[in-house]
Design a protein around this nucleic acid. Structure first.
Lengths: 233, 233
DNA sequence: CATAGAAAAATTGGATCCAATATACAATCG
DNA sequence: CGATTGTATATTGGATCCAATTTTTCTATG
């Protein structure tokens, strides 16, 4: 493998560490890179994604780029029109509200299923993420730590299909959450809510953890709505 | 458009009716055809999907076939291994159980959200599907009518993201449901449960409709489990 | 100068060809 | 005779080229 797959700002080694069993295809690499760029908000909504331009960034042909774009479309991160190309998907306020509603439903269920399976090690890991969240200021890392905190608990549910849907729905709205964290200061509140969720988990109270998770997501959704409404006018 | 895109058993017009705004690409057509074949059980789990073979069936090159396969993999309908090819995904009993649990959760919520929006026209349409289900004997058409019955009610929820997830999760297990309907006779029971759900909707009782939908899905899941356990040994 | 229409450029969708890898099978060695 | 290695074949991943379509630019005309 030469350096031809390494565009500026993409950490190949990080990806390789995720899946050592088999080398990633070019399409995999492009997919992961674009997904990351979209959910972190580095690619603004509505931005054109030209196949040729992306191919040149990675020093590959358009074939794997098209495959990556096709996958991104399936996940709702971009929209494409025949012969016109792909743009980063923009979500209406109604669509964002619906996704928060959906997340509240399934993540509340996932945490309920997870609590009985939580062991000390997992709780300690979650505690570290929870503390790190309070100390962090960089919005990208905040988003990452937020994910890790919730996922570390959710994984104990042993429900891979649920988790896949959690990830997919969070992917769609993550950039809006991060934008909000950058401009407003919702971090202290989110931190307190994380603290309460973790406490409920430590006490083995599945119903409480579930209710708090639900409220945590709906709170974040509501404050994002007010932020977006004034931002969009 | 010549007839070169029409393999035996694929209804192009049905697809065209779905999206008249723009002609379907070859990849779209292959994707829909394979999706249909998998969810209806015409392609058995574990079956190899050779790119070249599929391309010849449609008289196209392998490029759009690969795009279709990539999309199918994103939806969990096939699994692929680099340089080894794709096979129709098989689900373990645990995976099937998890998907039924997931469906029960979100479909119960969807029907709860739908009930307040149901109008007479929609209820009449659902009634027709409900009656047609009882009279039908062909398992493929039963599967189709079952979908239509539930969807006709769900659509009133006005939650496109929920509905997308309903469809995606049902896609994964539909072939097992249809196999069960073919071999056992769960139709009368399912018919009675549809009747009860529809009655609750007609009375505007969202909570009851939600509870009945949840039970309907969990019942179907349980009876499928016992069927699969004895079938698989 | 504004605008309709045509030509040119840009862009995507698809076909064909080549490279990389896996599988099947025969030849070889213990 | 069984295991192993080498070779041929099959199959997938990717590059390059061509066709279809859209977008842009240029030009003629009022």
């Amino acid at each position: 493998m030469t350096d031809r797959f390494i565009p500026p700002g993409f950490d190949v080694m990080k990806f390789a560490a995720v899946d050592v069993r088999q080398a990633a295809s070019a399409a995999d690499i492009v997919y992961e890179a674009l997904r990351k760029a979209i959910i972190e908000g580095d690619l603004a909504e509505g931005e054109n994604l030209r196949q040729d331009q992306i191919a040149q960034m990675f020093n590959i042909s358009r074939i794997p780029v098209r495959e990556a774009l096709s996958r991104l479309e399936q996940h709702g991160l971009i929209t494409t029109q025949r012969y016109k190309g792909a743009v980063v998907a923009g979500l209406s306020v109604e669509e964002i509200e619906e996704i928060f509603e959906f997340r509240a439903l399934i993540e509340a269920e996932v945490i309920r299923l997870a609590v009985p399976n939580l062991d000390r090690q997992t709780l300690e890991k979650a505690r570290r993420y929870c503390d790190a969240f309070d100390r962090e200021t960089d919005p990208h890392r905040l988003g990452e730590i937020n994910r890790n905190f919730h996922y570390s608990l959710y994984e104990a549910s042993r429900r891979p299909y649920y988790l896949q849907n959690v990830r997919s729905s969070l992917d769609r709205i993550d950039r809006y959450l991060r934008a909000q964290l950058t401009f407003t200061n919702g971090v202290p509140r989110a931190g307190r809510e994380h603290e309460a969720i973790l406490a409920a988990c430590e006490q083995g109270d599945a119903e409480l953890a579930s209710r708090l998770t639900r409220d945590h997501i709906l709170d974040a959704g509501r404050s994002l709505m007010t932020f977006l409404r004034e931002q969009r006018g």
